[in-house]
Simulated scan of single mutants.
Amino acid sequence: MSRARAVWQRVPAPVVDIVLVAVAAVDVLVVDMWEHTRPEVTLAAVGCAALAFRRRFPLGVFLLTLPIALMQDVAVAVLAALFTLAERSRNRRLLAVCVVLAAVASSTPWPLAEADRTMTLVFFVYGLATSVAPVLFGQLLQARRDLARRLAEVEEAREHERTLHAQAVLARERAQLAREMHDVVSHQVSLIAVRAGALQVAARDADAKEAARTIRSLSVTTLDELRTMVTLLRASGGKSTELTPQPTLADLRRLVESSGTHTELTGELPPTVGTPAQRALYRTVQEALTNVRKHAPGASARVELWQDGDGIGVTVTNTPPTRPSLSLPGSQQGLVGLRERAEILHGTLDAGPTAQGGYRVRLRVPLSAD
């Protein structure tokens, strides 16, 4: 059955429309349409031809096919128009009204004349049942399409959550490494610096004093670098590609284009921006767009680079979501890490909802941050 569905989906839409118009025309001709007047035949021809535009104007096409229902009890054109309308519309009241209209048109005597009320009522009930069938089938197809899209979103969210879990595990390993470096390596280097300082004071030989001074100076420099490394390890979770070159502002456009969200990138920054500031800006945009994709499905985003006096920054703003977001667990540590990274660079990070129902993340760091 899936193979037949795949074959059917490969048939071009215009071919399907042409075949449907032909079937509707044959259906009209079979019921002795030529016995009707010329205006009636014209209305029937217009209704059949209108089926070619049923995908773009489903309601209008249905109204154009109603005269055919007046001339015959069960019309293929009317049923096809009802199915298309039900497949594409979510307005249940409109669909109910259209079902009643089709039933009334099929049960009304034509030409208009007096008729048995009982038989008219019976024909109306049969017409109502006949009109409900394509509507139910169209709604079923719409629900199946919505379910398939929902399942795809759930699978995508699960894949994204697996990635976040891997990053969280890596973040814990980095935090443990930072503690080891702080508690063990830093302590031992400090002892080396203290011993070298004592040797520099106690030594009488000039060469020994110079060697002790060099060892103490290198130890102090190493301690400063270790503190910086420990701070950076605690500030971000990192990725599985830590040995690859770290991203800069030159990679920002590629990040925006591959974010999976309709995003606009505006603004420029001077070429003198330091590497740590570039990484902070990049990570801020990356985390903000990840949150948009996760918590605001269907929303669009705007990334704005700007300079304010001696400070530079980026603002990421997204519109309200157009679809309900999936209820997914999160670490809630993304913005915390960004704030820690901003504080290292003596900057600030603000995040919060907008008045329009969206969300805004704003990072500002000094231009001279290094």
Rank of each mutant, 00 (worst) to 15 (best):
M1C: 05
S2T: 13
R3M: 12
A4W: 09
W8G: 04
R10S: 12
P12W: 06
P12M: 02
P12K: 07
P14W: 09
V15I: 13
D17G: 09
V21N: 02
V21E: 04
A22Y: 11
A25Q: 07
L29R: 14
V30D: 13
W34F: 12
V41K: 11
L43W: 09
A45P: 04
A49I: 06
A52G: 11
V61C: 06
T65I: 04
P67M: 03
L79P: 00
L85S: 09
E87T: 09
R88S: 14
R88Y: 00
R92D: 07
R93G: 07
A96Q: 09
A96D: 06
V97L: 15
V100N: 03
S107H: 02
S107G: 04
T108I: 01
P109R: 06
P111T: 08
L112F: 15
A113H: 14
A115K: 02
T118S: 09
M119E: 14
M119F: 08
L121E: 06
G127D: 02
L128A: 14
A129N: 04
S131N: 12
G138R: 08
Q139Y: 01
L147F: 10
A148M: 05
E153M: 11
V154G: 00
V154H: 11
E155A: 12
A157M: 11
L164K: 10
L164W: 00
A168P: 01
A168M: 03
V169G: 00
L170A: 09
A171H: 11
H182R: 15
V185N: 01
H187N: 06
H187A: 15
Q188I: 06
Q188G: 02
L191S: 12
A193M: 08
D205I: 03
K209R: 15
A212K: 11
I215Y: 01
I215G: 01
R216P: 01
L218V: 04
L233S: 03
L233Y: 05
S236T: 13
S240W: 03
T241H: 12
L255A: 11
V256F: 03
E257N: 14
S258K: 10
S258Y: 01
G260T: 06
L265S: 07
L265Q: 06
G267N: 08
G267T: 07
E268P: 01
T272C: 03
V273S: 07
G274R: 12
T275F: 11
A277D: 03
A280I: 07
L289V: 07
N291S: 14
K294A: 06
H295R: 11
A299N: 06
R302C: 05
L305M: 10
Q307Y: 00
I312Q: 07
T315W: 00
T315H: 01
P320V: 07
P321C: 09
T322C: 05
P324N: 08
L326W: 04
L326A: 13
L328W: 03
S331L: 06
S331C: 00
L338A: 02
R341V: 07
A342H: 10
G347C: 08
A351I: 05
P353Q: 03
P353Y: 05
Q356V: 10
G357M: 10
G358Q: 09
P366I: 08
L367Q: 15
